[in-house]
Design a binder for these strands. Structure first.
Ligand SMILES: NC(=O)c1ccc[n+]([C@@H]2O[C@H](COP(=O)([O-])OP(=O)(O)OC[C@H]3O[C@@H](n4cnc5c(N)ncnc54)[C@H](O)[C@@H]3O)[C@@H](O)[C@H]2O)c1
Ligand SMILES: NC(=O)c1ccc[n+]([C@@H]2O[C@H](COP(=O)([O-])OP(=O)(O)OC[C@H]3O[C@@H](n4cnc5c(N)ncnc54)[C@H](O)[C@@H]3O)[C@@H](O)[C@H]2O)c1
Lengths: 217, 217
DNA sequence: TGTTACCTGTGAAATATTTCACCATTCTAA
DNA sequence: TTAGAATGGTGAAATATTTCACAGGTAACA
């Protein structure tokens, strides 16, 4: 009798998961434009990736298309939302009510895509109690209590870099499992916590490698 | 005499280029903390990647370390800045002076990392002429003229999604070669133009795949 | 009805990326 | 001076990811 590895890694590659929200965004846009069906080649053209990749990616989750016809846009949107667990709205907390925290809390683009900002925390006493987009800024003293009571799983971290790690530790200890970090610093977190980074400078520095600053093009 | 491929692809992988700014950020932080030297294993531990990958990545550009000792932080910072063409400050334009455009224009974290926001454009007549962080908001009528005159190569795009593509076309035609797009839409650009995307929802949707919304963890 | 143009899903092949494993070098301290 | 621990650079091996290419299936229409 052969010995079988107990939990042979059979997971879907993370890089595939990372493309699904991009597909979803493009499909939702098509749907909004009134488009009924599309094909892997049309979608690929719009996104700048190959049609084979799109088909292969989707094939990890099932068969969503029809030969000769392509994909029914609305149906694929629905399937992708299910795969990404977007069938319920995720409540989200913003930490840091500075310029960026204000912009995030004022942004209306979250809700229709699966997220709602419901809490804002800050340490600054002059900020606490103010209201942004109907959400009152709360004291950081309330942080752990609120996260546990409301089962907050996702936070947007918009505090100065120097405080980002210590706030992260508090979030993780209280039960947060997904953090989108806007501070220009790498966070150290346990394995079960997902961290995303949003540092415009990192992206710009990636581009400058390819750009000649003088050349009139 | 053998026939040699005229321009045998010998480029450094883009995925390697993309990690350099992350290394740079961590190293600059170490330097600021007064750290003189580091090693690939220490850096890897902080960034959550393997030491071998860091060494291999850097080896594409030269030999920057010393066996037994590691890397001199300040020296490696300098080398990475050169590789990424950050020895001069890149002037940057912001398009769209809404909530996000304001946050970006007010942000002081660009300059020490190689960028300076020097122009802000908007269509809204009630915004034009206002000043953010010493930068007057200009009319979009000035866009092409200014880009060409000042040789602007990089723009941050913070306009509503519906206008993002048409503004992009204008930027590209005028000579911009790097665009960091905050609108939740994919842009179509010619090959020589670099586009980065910053859509928090895409990143959150990536995370939710891995998170159980109820589980008290 | 036959023909043609399109399309998906997928195993296999081709590429790309990461990791391994080791030599040479450097530093520390006995 | 020597032994031992730490470290970088790097070919080769191991993995991961993308692309190819084709067997069906669908639709439109002459
Ligand atoms: N403004 C931007 O466009 C922008 C762009 C990229 C990155 N960032 C980064 O995002 C973060 C916030 O930027 P900002 O421009 O809003 O800065 P900001 O200084 O305007 O706001 C920071 C806020 O965090 C609060 N804060 C400080 N310590 C805290 C703590 N321990 N717990 C909770 N709140 C705390 C402060 O009271 C303040 O309200 C920074 O790390 C910055 O580098 C900002
Ligand atoms: N606010 C956020 O935190 C946030 C987060 C993620 C993404 N975004 C995205 O960033 C973009 C801007 O967001 P915002 O919250 O600042 O929106 P906003 O409505 O506050 O600002 C948009 C600004 O763009 C200007 N504008 C409109 N059409 C223009 C054109 N053709 N040329 C130049 N300017 C034009 C408007 O006058 C307005 O000032 C949107 O695409 C939004 O989806 C915003």
């Amino acid at each position: 009798m052969a010995l079988i590895a107990p939990d042979k890694e059979n997971q879907i590659p993370d890089i595939v998961i990372g493309r699904l929200p991009v597909y979803l965004r493009a499909l939702a846009y098509m749907h909004q434009q009134g488009k009924r069906t599309t094909s892997s080649s049309e979608l690929g053209r719009r996104l700048g990736i190959s049609s084979a990749q799109i088909r292969k990616d989707l094939s990890h989750f099932g068969e969503f298309g029809k030969q000769g016809t392509g994909y029914h846009v609305q149906h694929l949107v629905k399937e992708l939302r299910l795969i990404l667990k977007l069938d319920k709205i995720w409540p989200v907390a913003v930490i840091g009510a500075g310029f960026l925290g204000h912009a995030l809390a004022s942004y209306n683009g979250f809700e229709e895509r699966g997220f709602q900002i419901r809490w804002i925390f800050d340490t600054d006493p002059t900020q606490i109690g103010k209201v942004i987009n109907d959400i009152p800024i709360q004291s950081m003293n309330e942080l752990e209590k609120t996260i546990e009571l409301e089962t907050i799983k996702i936070a947007l971290l918009a505090v100065p870099a120097i405080h980002a790690q210590s706030v992260t530790d508090r979030l993780v200890d209280a039960g947060v499992e997904g953090i989108l970090n806007y501070a220009p610093i790498n966070l150290v977190v346990p394995d079960h916590v997902n961290v995303g980074y949003s540092d415009p400078v990192v992206q710009l520095q990636h581009m400058t490698y390819y750009i000649n600053p003088n050349e009139k093009f």
